[in-house]
Design a protein around this nucleic acid. Sequence first.
RNA 1: GCCCCCAUCGUCUAGUGGCCUAGGACAGCGGCCUUUCAAGCCGUAAACAUGGAUUCGAAUUCCGUUGGGGGCACCA
Length: 489
Amino acid sequence: MAVPVRVRFAPSPTGKVHAGNIHTAIFDYLLARHTGGTFILRIEDTDVERKEAGAVEHMMEALKWLGLDWDEGPGVGGPYAPYFQSQRLPLYKEAAEKLVAQGNAYYCYCSSERLEAMRKEQEARKQPSGYDRLCRNLTAEERTAKQAQGIKTVIRFKVPLEGQTRFHDLIYGDVVFDHKNIDDFVMLKSDGYPTYHLANVVDDTAMKITHVIRGEEWISSTPRHLLMYQAFGYTPPQYIHMPMIVGANRAKLSKRRGAISILEYRDMGYLPEALFNFLVLIGWSLDDKTEIMTRQQMIENFSLERMGRTAAAFNQEKLDWMNGVYIRNLTVADLTNSVLPFLEKYLPPEVKRPLDVNYIRQIVPLLRERINTLKDAAAYADFFFVDKLEYEATMLIGKKMTAETALTVLKGSEEKLSSLKSFNRDLLEDTLRHLADDLGLKAGQLFNVLRVATTARDAAPPLFETMEVLGKERCLERIKVAISKLSNN
RNA sequence: GCCCCCAUCGUCUAGUGGCCUAGGACAGCGGCCUUUCAAGCCGUAAACAUGGAUUCGAAUUCCGUUGGGGGCACCA
């Protein structure tokens, strides 16, 4: 087993957590569990403007739903608390000021208007964009004058004008950036909050993070972080940038381009184990064929060497299939529990609530092989619950059938079935096959009529099992309704 | 515009110089099973972006091209 690792999942509470976010959380979790290390949750709530109420709770709920239990962080505490950056402000201020004192950073008095104008001009002239370093070399007098005016300030990092920073990413390998392409970025904002860059370096150091796992979009900021580590005299962590999950258009997942929140997958009836398994397979593989794995297998076999580098699209059709596999592997008792809330929610309103769990337990085996999501169950099995079936009489008349023969089938069935003392699948099959013989019909022809009569659809679970669950009384009643439907035509 | 990353079937991927006439999975198509629908099983179609170089030999190494993506905020 590898050296125990300390990793953190550090979301910013600016919206609902989507597959991309959770994808990195999963790999944090896997690496931590694989090495017997520590998985930390840290909330990066340093953007006062974009902060959203309830986002932290939403995120924690999503993590819990997927079984991504964290060892340190909100709710569980830990030796490096607090785990909300908004509660650690003095640390960042102190750190930033330290770099100013050391000569690695400086106060900047530029207004946002000036910066915006500067950027516009750079863009117009097709110049590389970035801060022009106006305040980098202010004299002591100039600084005093600005301060006297009470101008709001930020602290910027003084990026070396020459040289380069290189690092070895555990997935992407060696990456090099020239300092001349990096501008003097803001570390501390004028509202006293740190930027991501500063807060990350300070907290990852304070929390003894050994491996930083984050999306590939962060690669180009990594040199800034490394430069800060150097200025502070801290040892940087290992970097593991992960390939991104992209949308159907191959672009980065974003809320406004329809990224689905993780909890929506729960509400659509996906099982957490299935979604977890599916997400793990994006960017990682166990071998050339294994796809369905237990959590334990994934943890035991996890290895960074088997991670890919290419952005991947989220293929919901495959998720559907995988979810179906997981559903079929569930016991009747477990699937009953899982599907119950979905039936409660999506069955037609006229169906009496609460539902009878014992009845559902009888239905579940008939459903299990036929649904891919828990939500599918309600639409698929509604005929087990409603009193009145809605369908056109013509549905009763199958191919190569006439209304007359359908009617004969129904009447014959009514007669035979009403005299049955027990209503179980074997007896039903036996009885109805004989009836078909007697009527000179193929068994399938007869079954099709009864299927429609009892379920109002031509694709349904096996007929006799269905009829057994529905019970004698309801079946006969439905057959009578079918007879009258045909007679009225 | 500048910087960085990536590039195998439609999609997720295996592949780390010869085992590749490129393997698996989803979706597609065909068939078997079968009372319908599923599930299951069998089969089929489908890819190494491109040009060079290295090598006895390249999907695998190197360079260029093309394409895609990401970054360039007092957002993360």
